[in-house]
């Protein structure tokens, strides 16, 4: 069983759009592995069919059995992380060992305020 970890610089779990996100990935691989891939993606949650999009990926070729490597990603302008009554959207970083497909993920909030946007349950009367 591989040990995979993702760490963001400064221990942050939230980031503003259009900024850089840096960090380190660590792994301990008991079996030979072709490569590891770090994916930046968002996905919807809620009652609707889940939509998802891998926005960026960083590939780590020729991994040693035990290693850590740094990464840097440019965050896009959106979509923001939010939570509503029917629909929510969350960002995550996912580290995948290939070809075994073993993976670990880490939730991330993408928002200008640094916090997930929470939509009101009921609208105010006009």
């Amino acid at each position: 069983m591989s040990q995979l970890t993702i760490a963001i610089d400064g221990g942050a779990t939230a980031a503003a759009p259009n900024t850089d996100l840096g960090g380190t990935v660590n792994w301990v691989l008991p079996k030979p592995t072709d490569a590891l891939e770090l994916r930046l993606l968002w996905r919807t949650r809620g009652i609707g069919t889940t939509d998802m999009q891998v926005v960026d990926r960083v590939r780590f070729e020729n991994p040693k059995p035990m290693e850590h490597r740094a990464f840097r990603l440019r965050l896009p302008p959106g979509p923001y992380s939010f939570s509503g009554r029917l629909v929510s959207l969350g960002w995550m970083l996912e580290l995948v060992a290939l070809p075994q497909q073993e993976s670990v993920s880490m939730d991330l909030v993408l928002s200008p305020t640094g916090q997930e946007i929470v939509l009101p349950q009921e609208p105010a009367a006009p």
Partner: peptide
């Protein structure tokens, strides 16, 4: 402002809507 969520159950496609801002 309205949330819209479309989902399928078998051959049914349903869209739920919820107004969150007025």
């Amino acid at each position: 402002g309205t949330e819209e969520a479309t989902y399928q159950r078998g051959t049914t496609t349903t869209t739920d809507k919820h107004v969150f801002a007025r």
